[in-house]
C-alpha cells in the first residue's frame, strides 16, 4: 500500500501537467472571444485586434502554453484579463472563503450524514429509518439554489435569525454551508446506512449481539470500522461535487469565494482565471482522493498488506 501511495504521489506532477494542458486547450476552445467581450459591441475590428495583442492572444496556442508553463513554474499564473490583477492574488483573496465554506459544508455533511445513517441502519424499516430515507432523497434531489433561496426567505427575511448574504461575520457562513452540505449529506447518509446494514447481517455481529455487547459497542466499535471503506470512499469522491456546488451556492449567497470568481471568469472568458481555478479544483480532488485512499489503508488492514 505504501508503494501504491508513493506511486500516486510520484504521478502527481504528471497529472498536474496533463490537467494544465487540457484546461489550457479547453478554455481556448470555448466559443466566444474575450477581446470582443472586453472591447464591447461598438469596438472596431482594429480595437479588438489591439486587445488581442495586449492579452497575447495573437500568439500561436503552443507558444501561449509554453509561456504559461514557464511563468507557472515561477509561481506566476498570469494576470486576470478582467481585473488586471495577478491571478495568484485573485486566488489568495477568494480561496480562503471557499475553503471555509467547503469545510463547514463537509463538516455538516459528515457530522449529520454518518450518525444519521448508523441510526437508520440500526432499525431498518422503522419510522426513523423511513424519515431518514425520505430526508436523504430530498437532500439529494432538491436543487441547492432553490434550497438556498428558501432558506434565505425563511431564516434571513422572515425570522431574521441569520444574515441574508455576504461574508461579514461568522454567522454569514451558516446558510450557504447548509445549502451546500445537503447533497453530500444525503449521499453520505445513504451510503452509511447501506454499508452498515450489510455489515450488521454478518455472523460476527450476531455473535457480538449474542454475547450481550452494548449496542454502542456493536455499532461503533465492531460494525462501523468494517463499513468505513465505502463511506470514506464516497466522502473522498464527493469533494468534486462540493467544489462544483460552490459555484451555485456562492452565487446565490454572494459569498466571495472561488466559485463566484469562476462564474465571472467564464462569463467574460477570463482565460488565466478559469485555468487557475480549474487547476486548483483538480488538485483538490486528486489530493482528497489520495487522502481517502490513505485513510482506507489505515482503516482496513487488508489494504495495508496489499
Amino acid at each position: 500500500m505504501n508503494g501504491y501511495i508513493l506511486r500516486k504521489l510520484l504521478a502527481f506532477p504528471a497529472v498536474l501537467l496533463a490537467v494544465s494542458l487540457l484546461t489550457f486547450l479547453a478554455v481556448r476552445m470555448l466559443p466566444g472571444d474575450p477581446a470582443r467581450l472586453i472591447a464591447g459591441p461598438e469596438a472596431s475590428a482594429e480595437a479588438v485586434a489591439a486587445v488581442h495583442a495586449r492579452l497575447g492572444l495573437d500568439q500561436p496556442v503552443g507558444a501561449q502554453y509554453l509561456a504559461f508553463l514557464a511563468h507557472a513554474a515561477e509561481g506566476d499564473l498570469g494576470t486576470s484579463i478582467e481585473s488586471r490583477r495577478p491571478v495568484v492574488d485573485e486566488l489568495a483573496s477568494h480561496l480562503p472563503y471557499t475553503l471555509a465554506l467547503g469545510l463547514a459544508a463537509y463538516g455538516l455533511a459528515v457530522g449529520l450524514g454518518v450518525p444519521g445513517g448508523i441510526l437508520a441502519a440500526a432499525a431498518p424499516g422503522k419510522p426513523w429509518d423511513r424519515a431518514f430515507s425520505a430526508a436523504t432523497i430530498l437532500a439529494l434531489s432538491l436543487p441547492s439554489f432553490w434550497v438556498g433561496l428558501m432558506a434565505m426567505e425563511l431564516f434571513a427575511v422572515r425570522l431574521r435569525w441569520l444574515p441574508l448574504m455576504g461574508a461579514g461575520s461568522a454567522s454569514h457562513i451558516v446558510l450557504p454551508a447548509l445549502a451546500l452540505s445537503l447533497a453530500p449529506m444525503g449521499l453520505i447518509g445513504r451510503m452509511t446506512r447501506a454499508a452498515m446494514i450489510e455489515i450488521l447481517r454478518q455472523n460476527y455481529i450476531r455473535t457480538a449481539r449474542a454475547k450481550g455487547l452494548e449496542p454502542f459497542a456493536i455499532y461503533v466499535r465492531h460494525a462501523l470500522p468494517a463499513a468505513s471503506t465505502p463511506i470514506v470512499t464516497i466522502v473522498g469522491l464527493n469533494l468534486g461535487a462540493v467544489i462544483a456546488g460552490t459555484v451555485v451556492t456562492e452565487s446565490v449567497f454572494s459569498w466571495p469565494g472561488v466559485g463566484r470568481l469562476l462564474v465571472d471568469a467564464v462569463k467574460y472568458r477570463d482565460y488565466p482565471v478559469i485555468q487557475a481555478v480549474t487547476l486548483v479544483a483538480v488538485v483538490s480532488v486528486v489530493l482528497a482522493n489520495l487522502a481517502a485512499e490513505m485513510a482506507i489503508a489505515f482503516l482496513d488492514p487488508r489494504m495495508r498488506r496489499g
Binding site: 439554489f145 433561496l149 448574504m165 452565487s251
Partner: peptide
Amino acid sequence: TWSSEPSVLYMA
C-alpha cells in the same frame, strides 16, 4: 453590492 439572483435583490 451585487447579486445575479433577481429574488435576492428583493429579499435584500
